[in-house]
Lab assay of single mutants.
Amino acid sequence: RHRTTFTSLQLEELEKVFQKTHYPDVYVREQLALRTELTEARVQVWFQNRRAKWRK
């Protein structure tokens, strides 16, 4: 699998949602996936990684 490189616009969208909730439900993730043109799975993994980073 290749590494997904996020654009600054995608990161902006993702971070905006992360500020509101660290655990977006499937509906929120789907909406975010559509807005960022990423798959829902990529969005889910981004949140997992972002939460790990936040905990440190």
Rank of each mutant, 00 (worst) to 15 (best):
R50G: 01
E13H: 04
L14C: 04
H22Q: 12
T39K: 05
E30Q: 14
D25E: 07
E12H: 14
T36E: 02
R3V: 04
L32N: 02
Q10D: 06
E12Y: 13
R35V: 11
F18V: 04
V45H: 14
S8G: 11
Q19N: 09
V28C: 13
E30H: 11
K16V: 04
L11P: 03
T5W: 08
L11E: 15
K16M: 06
K16T: 08
L32C: 03
K53H: 11
V26A: 13
Q31V: 04
F6D: 04
V17N: 02
Q44N: 11
T5H: 09
E40K: 06
N49I: 10
F47N: 00
K56T: 08
T21I: 04
D25M: 06
T5D: 15
E13S: 05
Q31H: 13
Q19P: 00
W46S: 02
E40C: 07
R51N: 08
R29V: 15
R50P: 00
A41L: 08
V28W: 05
H2W: 04
L38W: 05
Q44A: 13
Q44K: 08
R35T: 09
Q48L: 07
V28P: 01
T21Y: 04
E30I: 08
K56R: 11
P24I: 03
H2N: 15
K56C: 15
R50T: 05
L11C: 04
E40Y: 04
A33V: 06
T21F: 04
Q44C: 10
L34T: 09
H2E: 15
E30K: 12
K53Y: 09
E30P: 01
R35S: 07
R3A: 07
Q48D: 07
E15A: 02
R51T: 03
L32K: 01
V28N: 13
K53A: 13
T21P: 01
F6W: 07
R1V: 07
T7N: 06
T5M: 15
V43K: 02
T39N: 06
H2F: 08
E30A: 13
K20W: 07
V45Q: 12
T21S: 05
V45T: 12
L14R: 00
F47C: 01
K20F: 08
E13Y: 09
Y23Q: 03
P24K: 00
Y27I: 13
K56E: 13
A33Y: 06
T4R: 06
V43F: 06
T7G: 06
T4H: 15
R42H: 13
V17D: 00
A33W: 01
W54D: 12
F47H: 03
F47R: 01
K16N: 07
Y27S: 14
E40V: 11
V43C: 03
S8Q: 15
E13V: 06
Q31R: 10
L38R: 00
D25Q: 02
K20E: 15
S8W: 07
Q10C: 04
L32D: 01
L9A: 15
R42P: 02
E13M: 08
E30M: 13
E15K: 04
Q19G: 09
Y23E: 06
K20H: 09
Y23T: 02
W46M: 00
Y27R: 15
E12D: 11
T5Q: 14
E12G: 06
A41P: 11
E37V: 05
P24A: 03
L34N: 14
V45F: 11
Q48K: 13
E40H: 07
F6I: 13
L9K: 14
R55F: 10
L34M: 13
A33C: 14
Q44Y: 11
L32W: 04
T4N: 15
V17T: 12
E15S: 02
L32A: 04
F47G: 03
E40Q: 08
L32V: 10
T21Q: 08
L9M: 10
L38G: 04
R29K: 05
N49S: 08
F47S: 01
V43H: 00
V28A: 15
E15I: 01
T4M: 15
E37I: 03
R51E: 03
Q19I: 07
R51P: 02
H2Y: 11
P24F: 00
R29L: 12
D25G: 06
T36G: 02
Q44V: 08
R51D: 01
T36W: 04
V45A: 13
T36L: 14
R1T: 10
T39S: 13
E37W: 03
R3I: 10
K16S: 07
K53T: 12
T36S: 05
D25I: 00
R50D: 04
L14Y: 00
T5V: 11
R29P: 01
R55L: 13
K16I: 07
L32I: 12
A52K: 11
F47Y: 02
L38D: 05
K56P: 04
K53P: 02
L9V: 14
E15H: 01
R51W: 03
T36Y: 10
Q44H: 08
Q19F: 08
F18E: 01
Q10K: 01
T39I: 01
Q19R: 08
W54A: 13
H2S: 11
V26D: 12
T4E: 13
Q10N: 01
H2Q: 12
A33M: 12
R1S: 10
Y23P: 02
K20T: 14
T7M: 04
Q31P: 03
R1N: 14
Q19S: 11
T39D: 13
S8D: 12
R35Q: 07
Q44W: 05
T39P: 08
R51Q: 04
F47E: 01
R55Y: 09
N49L: 09
R55K: 06
V17L: 12
R42K: 13
L9Q: 15
T4G: 13
E30Y: 07
T7R: 03
R50W: 05
F47M: 02
Q19W: 04
W46D: 03
R42W: 08
V43P: 00
K20Q: 12
H2L: 06
P24G: 02
L38A: 09
Y27E: 11
T5C: 13
Q48M: 12
R1E: 10
F18W: 12
T7P: 01
V26P: 12
Q19L: 08
T36N: 06
Q44F: 09
Y23G: 03
D25H: 02
A41C: 10
E40P: 13
E30D: 06
E40D: 11
R29Y: 12
K16F: 05
K53Q: 15
T4F: 13
Q48A: 11
F47K: 02
E12T: 08
L11Y: 05
K20R: 10
K16E: 08
K53S: 12
Q48C: 07
A52W: 07
A52E: 14
P24N: 00
S8A: 15
Q48I: 14
E12V: 09
V45K: 11
Y23R: 02
E13A: 08
K16D: 02
N49Q: 15
E13W: 02
R35Y: 05
K20P: 02
W54F: 12
H2A: 08
E30W: 09
V45D: 15
T39W: 01
R55T: 06
T36I: 10
R55Q: 13
A52R: 10
L14G: 01
R51K: 06
R29A: 09
Y27F: 12
S8P: 14
Q48H: 09
R35F: 05
L38S: 14
K53M: 12
L32E: 00
E30L: 07
R29C: 11
W46Q: 00
E15N: 03
Y27V: 12
T5R: 12
Q10L: 04
K53L: 12
N49E: 15
V17M: 09
D25S: 11
N49M: 09
E15D: 03
W54N: 09
A52Q: 10
A52V: 11
Q31F: 07
S8R: 11
S8E: 13
R50I: 02
V26Q: 15
Q19V: 11
H22I: 05
A41R: 07
K16Q: 07
R50C: 06
R3N: 15
R1G: 14
R1C: 09
R55G: 10
E13P: 01
K53N: 13
Q19M: 08
F6K: 00
A41K: 07
